[in-house]
């Protein structure tokens, strides 16, 4: 009886895999032959009309911050939630880091490359609409400064230079400013977080001050991501 039961469970698993594979095959076949009319694809519209409508030469930025900006708001809120939950879950305020201490040579070199990283992060954030990059990448590069200080010196030195309250404050500015910039679209009579439709002055594509609200939204997301990642790293590395 037990052998028959085993064989039945094995057959059951194999049948599940086969039915799932068949389902995926049918779905893929349908998606592939969705329609011969190529005008139905949305990506055609983004590629052909995106630069004129939004004024940003980086098409990924025009999708992220103009067409699907509401999606980006949810993604950015996730980092805020993660930082808040980690700050609650790890209540240790004074703790030691394990791991080998570095020599003074490493400290001197880290001092040399910190201004370089700061300028690189600011360039990535503010030129996000005309070059590869954007708010998320620039925020990660800016948070590397705090991570380097934590690694080479200590947690205390890193929290002496960038205070935890200041980091919280900067993250809140990023979160609130994003929503306020979105509300500007409603005041001009169009939808929430609309940029190109609301006639914010798209300017000439390729210049620094162009594409309407897009550089400001990039700045808000950069501040938010950099502060959030620094809080997450500092609270995870404390151990006792």
């Amino acid at each position: 009886m037990s052998r028959l039961n085993e064989r039945f469970t094995k057959l059951y698993k194999i049948g599940l895999v086969i039915t799932f594979a068949y389902f995926l095959l049918v779905l893929f076949y349908d998606i592939h032959n969705l329609g011969t009319d190529r005008k139905r694809y949305l990506s055609e519209h983004y590629i052909s009309q995106g630069v004129q409508e939004t004024g940003a030469t980086n098409l990924v930025a025009s999708v992220l911050y103009d067409y699907r900006a509401f999606d980006t708001l949810g993604e950015a809120t996730m980092i805020l939630t993660a930082a808040t939950v980690l700050a609650f879950l790890v209540p240790i305020t004074k703790a030691t880091m394990f791991g080998t201490p570095f020599k003074s040579i490493v400290n001197q070199t880290v001092k040399l490359i910190i201004p370089y990283i700061a300028v690189l992060g600011a360039y990535l954030i503010l030129f996000g609409h005309i070059s590869p990059g954007g708010g998320f990448v620039g925020g990660v590069v800016l948070s590397i400064i705090a991570i380097l200080l934590t690694l080479t010196y200590s947690v205390e030195f890193s929290e002496y230079i960038f205070k935890p309250d200041q980091k919280k404050f900067i993250e809140d500015i990023g979160a609130i400013g994003f929503v306020l910039l979105g509300l500007l679209g409603i005041f001009t009579g169009s939808n929430f977080l609309s940029n190109g439709q609301a006639n914010f002055g798209t300017g000439n594509a390729g210049e620094v001050f162009s594409a309407g609200l897009m550089p400001f939204i990039n700045l808000m997301i950069g501040l938010k991501v950099s502060a959030g990642l620094a809080i997450i790293f500092n609270s995870l590395i404390k151990e006792k």
Partner: peptide
């Protein structure tokens, strides 16, 4: 620009791995 960002993040990667050997 992609190479610029990759160079920065890679240096941090090696430092963290060397710290927790």
């Amino acid at each position: 620009d992609v190479a610029l960002v990759y160079g920065v993040s890679f240096f941090i990667n090696v430092l963290i791995m060397a710290k927790y050997l």
